[in-house]
């Protein structure tokens, strides 16, 4: 039973009315989102969709990490930003936008790159990490840190019309290094803006379900979206017994 001072406010009831009405949702799920602390690594195309939808859904605390500034060439997909933001640091511009969307959300901007040394300390205290990064090398750092800290990670990646989404649940499921080989494609990858929006929105859906404890997630499965053929495959992923990250745990 939620203590009276932690119950949803009248403002919460109005803001979230359309999802509170869902039979799978209700006060308990909404309170879990409000009490959640989410780490979003990357405030680009994926991070834009993830941060906007998690803030809109009522996630209480979000840390958003990205070292970059907004460039005009970002704006085909990074819908957190406007033309006027060009030249601003992304996490500063993002924080303004997210707080204006939901003033109750506590947004912590981190203008830094998540690296192997800093990642475990940065993730500590969060309930879930969301991979919105733009290289495989950075993803492997976040994957390893999520295993070390013991929190789930929502994997997402895009190129062209193609995207991937999965939920990695340490220590139960395969981790990213179990099924994604270290083959770094040339960066930056060309991408259709709406591919990033589609995959980021799917990542947000997985995070919301996982935090609220509703529905069936992509834990142990990989969703592959081929937007050109408009085909989706949901694939079983298996642990690699020789995985350098998760096999000895």
């Amino acid at each position: 039973m939620t203590p009276p001072d932690r119950r949803l406010t009248p403002d919460d009831r109005e803001r979230f009315a359309r999802q509170l009405e869902l039979p799978e949702w209700g006060d308990a799920a909404q309170e879990r989102l409000r009490d959640a602390n989410v780490f979003i690594a990357g405030a680009g195309g994926l991070g834009s969709a993830v941060a906007l939808y998690l803030t809109a859904a009522g996630v209480g605390r979000i840390t958003l990490a990205d070292p970059d500034v907004v460039e005009l060439s970002n704006l085909n997909r990074q819908v957190l930003y406007t033309t006027k933001d060009a030249g601003r640091d992304k996490v500063g511009a993002a924080t303004d936008r997210l707080v204006s969307l939901n003033p109750s959300a506590a947004i912590t901007p981190l203008r830094e790159r998540v690296d192997a040394d800093s990642a475990p300390g940065l993730l500590a205290g969060h309930d879930i990490a969301i991979d919105c990064l733009d290289t495989l090398a950075a993803r492997f750092v976040l994957n390893r840190a999520s295993f070390e800290v013991g929190i789930p990670m929502v994997y997402g990646a895009v190129a062209g019309f193609t995207g991937h989404v999965s939920l990695i649940e340490p220590p139960e499921t395969a981790c990213l290094e179990c099924f994604v080989p270290r083959k770094e494609p040339p960066a930056p990858a060309p991408v259709l803006g709406c591919t990033a929006g589609l995959i980021g929105t799917l990542q947000a859906t997985e995070a919301v379900k996982r935090l609220a404890g509703v529905g069936e997630t992509l834990a142990g499965r990989l969703l592959v979206v081929d937007g050109l053929a408009m085909r989706c495959d949901v694939l079983e992923v298996q642990r690699d017994p020789a995985c350098p990250v998760c096999s000895s745990r």
Partner: peptide, 10 residues
């Protein structure tokens, strides 16, 4: 068999 290119953008 469906082949996947490396996908790494964000």
């Amino acid at each position: 068999v469906t082949l996947q290119s490396p996908v790494a953008g964000g």
